[in-house]
Simulated assay, not measured.
Amino acid sequence: MQAIIDQFFNFEIMRQALPMLLTGLVMTLKLCVVVVIFGLAGGLAVALGATSPRRWLRYPTMVFVDIFRAMPPLVLLIFIYSGLPFAGIRISPFAAVAVAFLLNNSAYYGEVYRAGILSIGRGQWEAAASTGLGMPQALAYVILPQAVRNVLPELLSNTVEVIKLTSLASVVSLAELLYAANMARSITYNASPLVLAAFIYLLLLWPLVRLVSRFQRQLAT
Rank of each mutant, 00 (worst) to 15 (best):
R69E: 10
S213D: 07
M14T: 06
L29S: 02
M71P: 09
L76Q: 15
F8P: 00
R58M: 04
L22C: 03
L22V: 06
Q146E: 14
R58W: 02
K164R: 12
A180E: 04
V33L: 12
V97Q: 11
V148D: 14
T166M: 07
L31D: 08
V172Y: 01
M20Y: 13
A107H: 13
V34L: 09
E12S: 14
F199I: 14
Q137N: 12
R149Y: 11
V172D: 03
L219F: 02
L205P: 01
W206E: 13
R69M: 03
S106M: 05
A107C: 07
L208R: 06
L25C: 00
A175L: 05
R185I: 01
L44A: 10
S52T: 12
F86Y: 05
G49I: 05
L102D: 05
G42N: 01
L18Y: 03
W56H: 05
Q16Y: 02
D66I: 06
G39W: 08
L48K: 00
L156F: 13
A169T: 08
Q137L: 15
L18M: 14
E111R: 14
G88H: 09
T51R: 10
L178S: 09
T61C: 12
L139F: 15
A100I: 14
M71I: 12
P153Q: 09
L211Q: 12
A220C: 01
G43Y: 03
V112I: 15
